[in-house]
């Protein structure tokens, strides 16, 4: 379970302060798949880095399985948007997936079976000895997902993981995430700027305001668990939900615009 309580982040430079996150409180229950959406530049990445223990918040706490986060927590895996930069280009696909497991000091046999299973789960059998950059973008992101899955995390953070792949690959990867989630029972926090993607993937959608960020709204996605690119997206309920999210995001953008002051 992931708890974010009163999270606040202010960047300080020599001359000025920028308030990125004002006050964020939400929880993601064990085994839940929750999507975070917000207008561009709303501090999603800052939030994710705080949750991942990569950035120290200015206030508030993050708890993973009720242990406060200080530094990257053990049971958490992260999939970054920039797949090209988050895979080690000097390692084969297999070594990329295996390295974190070796760091956990797992026995060799266990590492091999986890790597094999994870690569199979994402549909990458046969690419073990390739370098990541020899694969297409979508396949590279699959490697990153396999690495996260093999790590056996209790929580999986995904930071706009499909923002840089083409539309068809993206649909495939969305279904992959849903099926992995259903099979493994892992808790997933999925950050995206794509409203359709958030509604299609999530059990819940949390909408963020523009920076300085607070929670704008929250919504339970009452679509059937079995989802499918064709029918789910054509479902009137899907359309209604995405309209709601869209309106909230628009409202957040307008609220963020500074009111027109007197002409100087």
């Amino acid at each position: 379970m992931l708890e974010v309580i009163g999270l606040r982040k202010v960047y300080r430079t020599d001359r000025r302060e920028v308030e990125a996150l004002r006050e964020l409180t939400f929880t993601v229950g064990a085994g839940e798949l929750v999507c975070l959406v917000g207008p561009s530049g709303c501090g999603k990445t800052t939030l994710l880095r705080c949750i991942g223990g990569l950035l120290e918040p200015s206030g508030g706490t993050v708890r993973v399985d009720s242990a406060p986060v200080a530094g990257p927590p053990a049971g958490m895996a992260v999939v970054f948007q920039e797949y090209g930069r988050s895979l080690f280009p000097w390692m084969s696909v297999r070594d990329n997936v295996a390295l974190p497991l070796r760091q956990k000091k797992l026995p060799r046999g266990r590492v091999n079976s986890l790597v094999g299973e994870a690569l199979q789960a994402v549909g990458l059998e046969g690419t073990e000895t390739a370098y990541p950059w020899q694969l297409s973008g979508g396949m590279q992101q699959r490697v990153a997902i396999a690495r996260a899955v093999a790590y056996e995390p209790s929580i999986l953070l995904m930071d706009e993981p499909f923002a840089a792949v083409d539309a068809q690959t993206r649909a495939d990867l969305e279904d992959l995430v849903r099926s992995l989630w259903q099979r493994l029972g892992v808790t997933i926090l999925f950050v995206t700027h794509d409203i359709d993607e958030a509604v299609y993937l999530g059990q819940r959608v949390i909408m963020l305001s523009a920076s300085p960020t607070v929670i704008q709204d929250e919504l339970t996605v009452d679509l059937p668990d079995k989802r499918n690119q064709l029918h789910t997206r054509a479902d009137p309920r899907f359309t209604a939900l995405r309209t709601h999210v869209y309106e909230q995001i628009q409202a957040a953008k307008i609220a963020a615009q500074p009111s027109p002051g007197p002409v100087r």
């Binding site: 053990a74 895996a77 992260v78 970054f80 930069r85 988050s86 956990k104």
Partner: peptide, 14 residues
Amino acid sequence: VDSVLSDTSRSYGI
């Protein structure tokens, strides 16, 4: 060293 790669390493306890 690439910042994303560095973050990745830290998240995976390397």
